[in-house]
Structures are given as C-alpha cells and as structure tokens.
C-alpha cells in the first residue's frame, strides 16, 4: 500500500493506492497516527485509487474519528468507487462522515 500525502493550506490529503485490508491497514494507521500529534487534524482521504476496503481499513478511520473531532478537526472522503462506497453504506458511515466530490468542496469544508 502506497499513501500519497499532499499538504494544502488548511488540510492534508491522503491518497491510498491499492487495497486497504487487515494486512495493509497498518500503513494508514501509522500515517494518521503520526499526523495527529503534529496537529494535522483536517484530513481529506482521496479514494480515487482505493480499489478495495474491508472493516479493518475502515476501522482505522473510525478509531481516530473521535480524537479528530475533539481536536476540532475533520476527516472527509472523496472519489469513492461504487464497491468502496457500498462498504461505507453498509456500516452507516455515509451519514457520519462528510463525503465530498471536488477539491473546492474540500477547501470549503476545512475552511469552516
């Protein structure tokens, strides 16, 4: 699993490439785990190259969500393919985290 990090003015974009499962989720866990102590709590997950996600992958985001919200940060997702979006839907996550469509939406969301 490769994760491409891009720093924007008010948020950090992470673009995971490949599959996020019980085996590879440790890399996302390590990445977010090092960002939060650095104060990077506005996180945009660009899912355009994410081909699969299991509960272990989603569990990483869920486990940090409360910490991020307490630090007045946000985590938002974009560009999900249908099969990835379906996992979010099955777990009811689409109503709990922002799903955005464009870079402009990300900038607006994290500027609030």
């Amino acid at each position: 699993m490769t994760i491409v990090e891009t720093q924007h003015a008010t948020y950090t974009s992470l673009r995971p490439i490949g599959e996020l499962d019980a085996n590879s989720s440790i890399y996302m866990d390590e990445k977010i785990g090092t960002m939060i102590p650095d104060g990077k709590v506005n996180i945009h997950i660009d899912c355009s190259d994410l081909t699969y996600i299991s509960s272990a992958g989603l569990g990483v985001f869920i486990s940090y969500l409360d910490d991020i919200q307490k630090l007045e940060g946000k985590i938002a997702f974009s560009n999900m393919r249908e099969s990835v979006r379906d996992v979010f839907d099955l777990l009811g996550l689409t109503t709990l985290v922002p799903i955005i469509s464009t870079q402009e939406e990300a900038a607006n969301l994290f500027n609030k």
Binding site: S55, L58, V60, I62, Y64, L65, D66
Partner: peptide, 9 residues
C-alpha cells in the same frame, strides 16, 4: 466511534 473500537465490524 465513541469508544475508538475497531473490532466487530
């Protein structure tokens, strides 16, 4: 989310 729990999903 409240109890930072990953398992069970």
């Amino acid at each position: 989310i409240k109890c930072h729990q990953r398992g069970g999903m």
